[in-house]
Amino acid sequence: MTGVERVVWSPVGGTVTALADVPDPVFSQAMVGPGIAVEPRGGRADAVAPIDGTLTTVHAHAFVIAGDDGAAVLVHLGIDTVKQQGEGFTLHVVKGERVRAGQPVVGWDPDAVRAAGYAPIVPVIALDAQQEALRPVDAGRTVEVGDELFTWSG
C-alpha cells in the first residue's frame, strides 16, 4: 500500500469537527483509528459512502466500507445511536454490497437524533491507520456531502 493516497469524502454535509471533541472515548481517543468528525446539518438526508469499496459491516446507525486495498473507513451516525434501534434510519444497502463513493447508504435525520437526546455528530474513522497518515481538512470548515474530508496515505 506504499505510496497510495486515498481521498475520503464526507458522508454528510456540516461542520468539520476535531475527533477529540466527539463525546465518546472510543472516537475521541482514537481507539479504533484516527479520523475526523462532521457536525451534520439538520433535516432528513442520505449519508453517503466516503470511499469506493465493499460494505463489510452495516447497522442502521453505522457502517464500514473496505476498499479493495483493505483500507477500511467507519462512519458512525451519531453517538450512542445504537439505542435508537434503527428507528428513523433507512438503509439503502446490504452487507457485502459494493458501493461507489458518494452512493447513498443510510437515510437519517440529525434533528430527530438530537430530539431523541443523542449527539448527531458523525465520526469518520480510518480504521487501524496511523495518525500521521491522515491529512484532514481544518476543523471549523463547512463541507457539503461528497466534499473531501481527509487524505489517507500509506
Binding site: 472510543v26 481507539m31 479504533v32 447497522h59 453505522a62 464500514v64 467507519l74 445504537v82
Partner: peptide, 9 residues
C-alpha cells in the same frame, strides 16, 4: 453481549 461496530457491549 452484543457487537456494535467497534465494541462489545
Amino acid at each position: 453481549i452484543e457487537g456494535c461496530i467497534t465494541r462489545l457491549r
